[in-house]
Lab assay of single mutants.
Amino acid sequence: VTTYKLVINGKTLKGETTTKAVDAETAEKAFKQYANDNGVDGVWTYDDATKTFTVTE
């Protein structure tokens, strides 16, 4: 299990959150659900070296 980070650069929501997941794909699903629940819809990137997803509106 690895800790992944999400950086949110939204129009109305900015911040960070983390999740523990077995792989990046599982973390991405959780983060996309989180973003959707919070009304954030943007461009996604992922940096494997830092295990960090970024979504920018």
Rank of each mutant, 00 (worst) to 15 (best):
V1A: 12
V1P: 12
V1R: 07
V1M: 13
V1D: 15
V1N: 10
T2P: 08
T2L: 13
T2H: 14
T2V: 12
T2C: 10
T2R: 08
T2D: 12
T2A: 13
T2Q: 12
T2I: 14
T3E: 14
T3F: 07
T3I: 13
T3D: 09
T3W: 12
Y4G: 01
Y4L: 00
Y4E: 01
Y4M: 01
Y4S: 01
Y4C: 01
Y4K: 01
Y4I: 01
Y4R: 00
Y4T: 01
Y4A: 01
Y4Q: 01
Y4H: 02
K5L: 09
K5T: 12
K5C: 07
K5Y: 15
L6V: 03
L6I: 03
L6R: 00
L6A: 02
L6Y: 01
L6Q: 01
L6H: 00
V7M: 07
V7W: 05
V7D: 03
V7I: 15
V7E: 05
V7N: 04
V7R: 06
I8T: 03
I8G: 02
I8L: 07
I8Y: 07
I8P: 01
I8K: 01
N9E: 13
N9A: 10
N9P: 03
N9R: 11
N9F: 11
N9H: 12
N9D: 10
N9V: 15
G10D: 03
G10Q: 06
G10W: 05
G10M: 15
K11M: 11
K11A: 11
K11F: 10
K11Q: 09
K11H: 14
K11G: 08
K11T: 10
K11C: 10
K11V: 12
T12G: 10
T12K: 14
T12I: 13
T12H: 15
T12W: 14
L13D: 05
L13P: 04
L13A: 09
L13W: 14
L13I: 14
L13M: 14
L13H: 13
K14I: 13
K14A: 09
K14G: 06
K14T: 11
K14F: 11
K14N: 13
K14D: 05
G15M: 14
G15T: 14
G15P: 05
G15I: 12
E16T: 13
E16I: 14
E16L: 12
E16R: 07
E16P: 05
T17Y: 13
T17A: 12
T17G: 05
T17P: 03
T17W: 14
T17F: 13
T17D: 03
T17R: 11
T17N: 05
T18S: 11
T18N: 07
T19K: 06
T19M: 14
T19G: 04
T19Y: 14
T19A: 08
K20A: 13
K20Y: 14
K20V: 15
A21G: 04
A21C: 07
A21I: 03
A21P: 01
A21T: 05
V22Y: 15
V22P: 14
V22K: 11
V22N: 12
V22G: 09
V22T: 15
V22A: 11
V22M: 14
D23F: 05
D23P: 01
D23C: 05
D23G: 04
D23L: 05
A24S: 11
A24H: 09
A24F: 12
A24N: 07
A24L: 10
A24V: 13
A24W: 14
A24K: 15
E25P: 12
E25R: 10
E25G: 10
E25L: 13
E25H: 12
T26L: 07
T26E: 12
T26R: 06
T26D: 09
T26K: 07
T26V: 07
T26I: 07
T26W: 06
A27C: 02
A27M: 01
A27I: 01
A27H: 00
A27G: 02
E28T: 04
E28W: 14
E28Q: 11
E28D: 04
E28S: 07
E28M: 12
E28K: 11
K29W: 07
K29G: 05
K29N: 06
K29L: 10
K29R: 15
A30I: 13
A30W: 15
A30Q: 15
A30V: 15
F31Y: 02
F31P: 00
F31H: 02
F31C: 03
F31M: 03
F31E: 00
F31G: 00
F31D: 00
F31W: 02
K32S: 04
K32Q: 08
K32R: 15
K32G: 03
K32D: 02
K32F: 06
K32C: 05
Q33F: 05
Q33M: 10
Q33D: 08
Q33H: 10
Q33L: 10
Q33E: 11
Q33R: 14
Q33N: 12
Q33I: 12
Y34S: 02
Y34R: 03
Y34F: 11
Y34I: 05
Y34C: 04
Y34Q: 03
Y34K: 03
Y34G: 01
A35K: 01
A35Q: 02
A35F: 03
A35H: 02
A35C: 11
A35E: 01
A35N: 03
N36K: 15
N36D: 11
N36S: 14
N36C: 09
N36L: 15
D37L: 12
D37K: 11
D37I: 12
D37N: 11
D37Y: 07
N38G: 05
N38F: 14
N38Q: 15
N38M: 15
N38L: 14
N38I: 15
G39E: 08
G39C: 06
G39P: 02
G39F: 07
G39W: 05
G39M: 07
G39R: 06
G39S: 05
G39H: 10
G39Y: 06
V40W: 08
V40M: 06
V40I: 14
V40S: 03
V40F: 11
D41I: 15
D41S: 12
D41C: 10
D41R: 13
D41M: 13
D41E: 13
D41L: 15
D41T: 15
D41F: 14
D41Q: 13
D41Y: 13
G42L: 03
G42K: 02
G42M: 02
G42Y: 03
G42N: 02
G42T: 02
G42P: 01
G42F: 03
G42A: 02
V43W: 10
V43C: 09
V43S: 08
V43E: 12
V43L: 11
V43D: 11
V43P: 03
V43A: 10
W44D: 00
W44I: 03
W44M: 04
W44C: 02
T45K: 06
T45Q: 07
T45H: 11
Y46Q: 01
Y46E: 00
Y46R: 02
Y46T: 01
Y46H: 02
Y46V: 01
Y46A: 01
Y46G: 00
Y46D: 00
D47E: 06
D47M: 04
D47K: 03
D47C: 10
D48P: 13
D48I: 09
D48W: 06
D48R: 06
D48A: 14
D48V: 10
A49W: 07
A49T: 12
A49M: 10
A49E: 11
T50S: 11
T50K: 07
T50I: 06
T50A: 09
T50L: 08
K51S: 06
K51M: 07
K51C: 07
K51L: 08
K51E: 04
T52N: 02
T52L: 04
T52R: 03
T52I: 07
T52A: 03
T52Q: 04
T52S: 04
T52D: 01
T52V: 07
T52F: 02
T52P: 00
F53K: 00
F53Y: 06
F53W: 08
F53I: 02
F53H: 02
F53G: 00
F53Q: 00
F53M: 02
T54G: 03
T54Q: 05
T54C: 06
V55R: 00
V55E: 00
V55S: 02
T56K: 04
T56C: 06
T56R: 05
T56Q: 06
T56V: 08
T56A: 05
T56H: 06
E57V: 10
E57T: 08
E57Y: 08
